[in-house]
Computed example of a mutant assay.
Amino acid sequence: MNEYYLDYREQVKNVLDALDDSSTSLRLGAIAIENLLNLARVELDEEDEDEEGEEDEDEEDSSEDADSDSPEDLKQVKIIRHEEAETSSPYQINSGHQLCRFSRGLKGGSFYNEQGQLLAEINELAVKNLNIENGDLAELDASSHPARVVRIVEAVGEPSDIATLPYGIVERDACGDLYVSHNAMGERLSECAGIDRYDVPAVIDAGQSETGFVHEGDIVDLAWYQNNPAKMIVRWVSQTQGQAGAKKEKAQEKKPARSETEDKDKDAGDVTTLNYDLHGCSVAVVIGNELRSQEIQKLVGQHHGRCKVIDAFKFSDTEAFYKHALKRADLTVMVQNLNKHSTSKALRKYAKRLAIADSAGLSSIERAIYRALHGLPAYETSTQPIAYPVKELALS
């Protein structure tokens, strides 16, 4: 079978531009370029060979003299440009599948066909896993039960009559009731909904109900119809800081005292828990206020990659900034709880490979980098477990 190569010249040029005179930089650059060339190599299907057979016969006579001095096993090389590679229309779907539009709900959403018929509904977790927005065109396999989303054909992101306050901070007042009045970015609920605070219902307040799931300190997404903020709901609980804090306190009680020397030795050691090699890839970690930037850079460095930590709250012109900032980033990780909604949309548009870390913990960021590196789902869920290559620890 003939061997073909995708056009990776721009990426190779970016690697060369980033190199300096140090031996480490040159070594990592060589690894990165070798990795790019391996990614570029693709094989031509036998059907394509048959279709091009007639053209090859016409050219055989003219190229006979040039090939006579070449080794017999020399492979034919062709550069496939992006416009040549995209030969099929994105709107072509398999038989039995249907094109449908996604309609966002307060929680989850629905898929409708051209005739307006409801084909399927998905919950909030599925919406986040698919990273789908209102008006997006999707290919649906309606024959499976439940219906399965095959792919997102076109990202439209049409406006809807649903308003949201992402990353709202759950607080407790003097009476013991939970409420949300602002989010992690400093946006106040009164500015976007016209009400001072959202009172968390007792039925989902973990302090007032045995089945409640919202705690003080949690980060939540609120959603409501623009003409009816009184019917506001908790769309998603991103982080259970209340539970995590309680577990941390118990662990600290049982943990024996450590000396300053032991703490310094730990800080100087490995921070990685997974076993994978980035081969010099550039990783952009987008996190609010550049939190834990030194630890994140150390983590990426121990996986033999280059890291750039970006402050998600610093730039007003989000679209223009990320278009430039992600141009040389091979992988992008967004820390979900410490970002703005506009940042999420810009990253989805300009990141080459994107994964979402559900918290600022190093293990969460490390897993997200692995998913981005290997093209795995952006979100990590319990319904789709991922087998991470765990690093073997030396026994002492």
Rank of each mutant, 00 (worst) to 15 (best):
L137M: 11
G207Q: 09
D199P: 00
Q226K: 14
S190R: 11
V220A: 02
I162T: 11
E191T: 05
D199G: 02
G135A: 07
P159S: 09
P146Q: 09
A193Y: 01
N183W: 06
Q208P: 09
G207V: 04
M185N: 10
E210N: 12
V150C: 00
D136P: 08
G217Q: 04
V150A: 03
R148M: 13
G186M: 10
V150D: 01
L222W: 01
A174V: 10
V180T: 02
E210D: 15
G176I: 13
R148D: 10
A163W: 15
D199Q: 09
S144T: 15
P159W: 10
A202N: 11
E216T: 11
S190I: 07
G157D: 13
Y167L: 10
Q208G: 03
Y179K: 09
A142E: 05
D177T: 15
Y167P: 03
A202M: 15
V170D: 05
V220H: 05
P166F: 04
Q208D: 15
I219F: 06
D221E: 09
T211P: 01
S160Y: 10
V220C: 04
D161C: 10
A184M: 04
S160I: 13
V203A: 04
G194S: 04
Y225D: 13
S209N: 15
V170A: 10
L189D: 01
G217N: 07
V149P: 03
R172A: 07
D173N: 15
D205W: 03
E210M: 08
E216C: 14
G212M: 08
D196C: 04
D141W: 10
A174S: 05
I162D: 14
G168L: 06
S209Q: 08
A223S: 14
H182D: 05
G168D: 12
E191M: 06
Y179H: 08
